[in-house]
Design a protein around this nucleic acid. Structure first.
Lengths: 159, 159
DNA sequence: GTTACTATACTCGGATATTGCTTGTCCGAGTGATAATGG
DNA sequence: CCATTATCACTCGGACAAGCAATATCCGAGTATAGTAAC
């Protein structure tokens, strides 16, 4: 079980955008150069963030991506859900209803599978922690110099 | 991101063993018939539980698998770790150190990546919840009739 | 100098290959039970 | 009748394919920009 790299990429890109604090959109190529990532594939992943309402994209020359909300309004949960989807990590396939085990009376299947319920409980704790942390929190935790340096680098390399 | 089916299978099998409460080993074929699962592949997954010290396997005629500890001593975390591995779900690939972003002074890389730290924090909450629930808890939460029925079925179908 | 227009370059966006991992299958090694055999 | 031995059937265990999702790439549609020409 492994989380896709798109989550890491998306979070780093959002963090860059938050640090820049500018209203100009930033194109995929900029992010790709910053982190040495395949531009086309990175673009594909950022599209998922647009669909989820985290970023807004503007086409045409001098286009690119911007944050759709303020950093305090964007949680890790939002980004993870946008990239990985909203489905549960543990997916109950109801094997208790198949084979000889399904010979049980229907009454026993009324309440949901206990294993699925237990896994779901743990997963909710995970989601709660993700929702409790925002981009703004990440900015505070980072070294103070990071934000300024990112902004300066952007001024230097923009078209 | 999706948890492998082996976790669900392993948990259900452990639960069956806990309900039977017998010392006789149960072969893979029994479990496979109970849940209508591919026997060979199920066996492969149960081996992982043996390597993790959750089950013990006995070869030869009338062999099979037994619980290595009492149900109160087996947590969901144990089973998940045994099947899925002990690696983090979110794996930081340190993209901050690549491309133009790596031009930052070394000093900024001394503390670990903030994104990885945040994800890890959420993951620990998940693990904590998994570790807090044991097989014994699952047995209690299940319908009272389930245990007895499993035991009777086992008496009927054993060789 | 201002405005309208046209051509252009740059951006996103989704359709199309490729890779890696999860799932699934097979056969061999080893072990305990069983039955035959001799005392 | 009991002990011994050889056979056998049954089990786990790891090596060998198939399917699917994540990864990576490419090309087309659309738009803001910049340049040009007319007023």
């Amino acid at each position: 079980m492994r989380m896709s790299e798109g989550v890491e990429w998306g979070l780093h890109c959002c963090l860059i955008l938050a640090w820049l604090g500018t209203d100009e959109p930033v194109p995929t190529a900029q992010f790709a150069a910053w982190f040495e990532l395949p531009p086309a594939y990175l673009n594909k992943r950022l599209q998922a963030l647009v669909r989820a309402g985290i970023l807004t994209s503007t086409p045409g020359a001098r286009g690119g991506f911007r944050l759709a909300r303020r950093p305090e309004q964007i949680s890790l949960m939002d980004v993870v859900a946008a990239v990985e989807g909203r489905e549960d990590v543990f997916r109950c396939t109801e094997i208790r209803r198949r084979g000889e085990g399904a010979e049980a009376p229907e009454r026993e299947f009324l309440q949901p599978c206990g294993i699925a319920a237990a896994m779901r409980k743990a997963e909710l704790a995970w989601r709660r922690e993700l929702a409790a942390q925002t981009l703004a929190d990440l900015m505070e935790a980072a070294p103070p110099s990071a934000g300024g340096r990112a902004r300066r680098h952007y001024e230097r390399t923009r078209r």
